[in-house]
Design a binder for these strands. Structure first.
Lengths: 292, 292
DNA sequence: ATTTATCATAGATGAGGTCTATATCTCCTC
DNA sequence: GAGGAGATATAGACCTCATCTATGATAAAT
């Protein structure tokens, strides 16, 4: 019907101010333009919308009916624009992150805190899962970004390399005698080893390393969280294979110590994954900047 | 913020159809135009609104939020346009008429019936009052048109002359002896006269007529409705001064007869008044056409 | 490998929105 | 009443910018 919604904006202001001149001022256009716009509306409806008089304009019956609809419409547009501005300013919105359990707690936590302080209006959604799950979440659009251990090879994903993590074997006071010693892999295997559960990336990596030297790494105990790896090692139940950066507190206070090996354990990196060729939300972009 | 609401219409269709190409078809424009419009919105918000892929487009988080507002906005506009079309077609709307009591019943009734049958969606509001009251209603915008007796002299009003009404004196069987006689004004004054209440136009007119001949018309009885004028005359309480067109039934059945006078009583016209220089509502225009 | 979708980009064009200038009308004031 | 102030309407010129055509790029389907 009307093929130019711009006219409704003009109508709205003319009705609201009761004056074509005032409407023109509000819209930063001239009065004849407003006059022309209203005329177009009236012509296309075949209805008079305003009574004109020397003091301004007043809505006709039909104009008042139109206004009751257009007013609502304009209100929604105003609210939309405010909302968009808020989203742009990060005063509003949400950020959905997927990650491995341990990375949330030991790596992301301080960033999440800072981000939340800077942008309290942004709702944070944290989804934990295994690396393949996180990748699925990303592809399904359920999260904005995923934080997992590298390497990730997937053409659909864009991966940003973040900090380096070094895994290592640690023990508690029970194995005090090993402090300062440098063990070979073979020697290490004589002690009870505590590993993270089978499907973890770190577990696979260390198993492969032993295999490449011709040994088979067989854990005495398997646990499902980094906390338990730490706890069991402290209690002397065995030697845990953990991420060094996650136990800095225990190393410092001396409740755990690192066991030196005669082979170098390859470091891994944390990767921040996003969908390639998909625009990042402002909040996701901002969070990644913060982390990197 | 956005200075072209037209863009929202394009956005709405793009989001709704999930395809810029489809949106273009719906809007009867080309796909590059849609592409350009969406880009403008995204640029001005500084936010991505759609994910593009080879099957079409999908809303981003921010886009979905925008859509939730814009959808409402567009719905109101659609409903507004439907409503305007209905008003134009007289499928909806209202018609407010002001008039003297007797004119409603004896003159307008058949037109009102016909109008209502033709346009059952139009609500009819009837406001009765004296001529000055009707004029005030018109000037206050409380009615669309007024139906009263001429003459009306008011520069702000536009008056259309409608049917002619002839007033006359009538009596019932009690005065049978006057049937066929031609009375002078003086002779008439010897009978009890029944007139409409003081502030009516017809009363003033007839009083002036007598005065111009040097007589003073003093009613025996004053009543407030045409029905009572008729009823009192039938019962033989006197000679009523009524509008001939309103008593055609009684004249036909013989319960009243007209008293011939040797002076001619000036006819009056019904006038249909509207505000000059104010656009008439479609319904008012249509009703006036019907009546004339 | 080819076809057929999709959206993006570039450049040309012309419709039409906006402007200036002026007319017209009404109300208010002196 | 004459004149001024303020409102909207009208006319015509101008120039922006929405839209077009043509083409490119990419992905999916055949």
């Amino acid at each position: 019907m009307i093929n130019n919604y711009e006219l409704y904006k003009v109508f709205y202001w003319a009705a609201k101010t009761g004056s074509l001149t005032q409407a023109a001022k509000a819209l930063y256009i001239t009065q004849p333009s407003v006059s022309h716009a209203i005329k177009q509306l009236e012509d296309s409806f075949g209805l008079a919308l305003f009574y004109r008089n020397s003091k301004g304009v007043a809505l006709t019956q039909e104009g008042a009916i139109l206004y009751s609809y257009i007013e609502q419409s304009q209100n929604f547009i105003s609210r939309a624009e405010e909302k968009m501005a808020a989203l742009k300013n990060l005063d509003s919105g949400e950020l959905r992150i997927g990650g491995s359990d341990s990375l949330f707690k030991h790596y992301l936590l301080p960033y999440l805190e800072e981000f939340h302080q800077n942008h309290p209006g942004i709702k944070l959604h944290l989804n934990h899962g295994t690396t393949p799950e996180i990748i699925s979440f990303l592809k399904e659009g359920r999260i904005d970004l995923g934080v997992v251990r590298m390497p990730i090879v997937d053409a659909q994903l864009e991966v940003r390399e973040s900090i380096q993590l070094k895994d290592c074997f640690v023990a508690g006071p029970r194995y005090e005698q090993l402090k300062g010693e440098t063990l070979s892999l073979e020697m290490l295997l004589q002690y009870p080893v505590i590993l993270f559960s089978r499907n973890s990336r770190a577990r696979m990596a260390i198993t492969e390393l032993f295999q490449s030297y011709g040994y088979k790494l067989k854990p005495e105990i398997e646990v499902g969280s980094v906390e338990l790896l730490i706890e069991f090692a402290r209690k002397g139940l065995g030697i845990s294979y953990v991420t060094k950066e996650f136990i800095s507190k225990e190393l410092e206070e001396g409740s755990l110590f690192e066991i030196q090996l005669d082979v170098k354990l390859p470091p891994t990196h944390v990767g921040i994954m996003t969908m390639r060729n998909m625009p990042l939300s402002i909040s996701a972009r901002r969070f990644i900047e913060l982390v990197q």
